[in-house]
């Protein structure tokens, strides 16, 4: 058993609008001098620390928790899960 850090990134599905990202892009970033930026997406990140057998099982355990507790709503959101050694 070991400790792992697992990062859960929750964002809207790619085809779904992200009004917050769009406002930050158009009304803040592009109004300045940073014209090379073409897109901003917002996301929410949860950082777990979890004790599991392996990095893989840490990831799958966290995914299970996210699904079971509706940490994201699969109707509109997708999650990306990354695991790191603690």
């Amino acid at each position: 058993m070991g400790d792992y850090r697992v990062h859960v990134t929750i964002e809207n599905k790619p085809g779904i609008s992200d009004p917050e990202g769009k406002t930050i892009l158009n009304d803040l970033v592009l109004k300045g001098t940073h014209q090379s930026v073409s897109k901003i997406n917002t996301a929410k990140m949860l950082k777990f620390t979890i004790t599991e057998n392996s990095k893989e099982s840490a990831k799958s355990k966290v995914k299970e928790i996210c699904d079971e507790l509706r940490i994201y709503n699969s109707m509109v959101s997708v999650v990306t899960i990354d695991a790191f050694d603690a």
Binding site: K13, G15, I16, S17, D18, M75, V76
Partner: peptide, 26 residues
């Protein structure tokens, strides 16, 4: 956009997929 396609019928609709949703984003 593609959100909200199918409106009230969506619950049983195949339009639900990885990248889009019948639910509208406010």
């Amino acid at each position: 956009g593609r959100d909200g396609i199918g409106g009230s019928q969506f619950a049983s609709d195949s339009l639900e997929s990885e990248n889009r949703s019948a639910v509208q984003i406010p």
